[in-house]
Amino acid sequence: MSTDNHLTWRLLRVWRRDWLVTRKSWLIGFMTPLLEPILYITSLGFGFRILIPEIQYEGHTLTYVVFMAPAIIATNIMYTAFMENSFSSFVRMYYQKTYDAIRATPLSVDEIIAGEIMWGATKSLMAATIMVTVLSLFGLVRYPTGLGLLPLAFLGGLLFGAIGMLFTAFVKSIDMFNLPIFLLITPMYLFSGTFFPLENLPGWAQGMAWALPLTHLVSLARNLCLGTVSWMNVLVSGGYLLAATVLLVPLALRLMRRRLIK
């Protein structure tokens, strides 16, 4: 329908709704990004200290905690936005009929979905802000490059939110989200240079890993944290994330339009 193919800043009204509703349960939202890095650092940091005294990464010699810490932020950015725009958006769409209610107001489907994706990215940004703060207290973030993690969190949030929304446009029941998590999210979590350097993988597997969005998010997050970020890095990985976002957000809007407008 041509009428719903409209995108204006009214999408912020949907964003605001999500913000006001989420604010009610802020404590839960606050605790996860606060505790997660502490848990990872203590568990993997202490646990692997003897197993892996140091690690080689792009010519730098790092302790395991220093290597792994930025990946905690990157994977959290992915999970936060993906979960928000898959499970949570599906609940709003399917069970709570929130979208139906909003579609009786002067908002288009595009604005609803774009507002939802922007909300998912905002959640990623908020979680990343807390995590960066915690990791800074452990001395694991270099500044000023570390500040680049915040816009990166928002961009990564938009991308993984859009990916979540793509599945929301298709799934028949909420259980079906386990499929993309099992086939896409978890493999990325394990193979995107998160827990070990990609250099450890065979060449073909490295190539495959660089096709995944999380690899680029991890790479940028790590180099921003370490203060080793290069323009090449920003150009390649930032370019990848930006291009994928510019491609997938409109696709998510289109597929949701197809699902919702009947």
């Binding site: 009214r10 009204r13 949907v14 605001r16 709704r17 006001l20 509703v21 009610k24 349960s25 709570q96 009929k97 929130t98 139906d100 209610a101 909003i102 009786a104 107001t105 002067p106 908002l107």
Partner: peptide
């Protein structure tokens, strides 16, 4: 115009007042 749907589409976890005020936000 205002629409009241057949199926309830209220925000369950929110208060009665919040439901009204949040909805007002969609109209600006």
């Amino acid at each position: 115009l205002g629409v009241c749907h057949q199926e309830d589409s209220l925000d369950e976890e929110m208060s009665v007042r919040d439901n009204l005020e949040i909805f007002a936000g969609f109209f600006g």
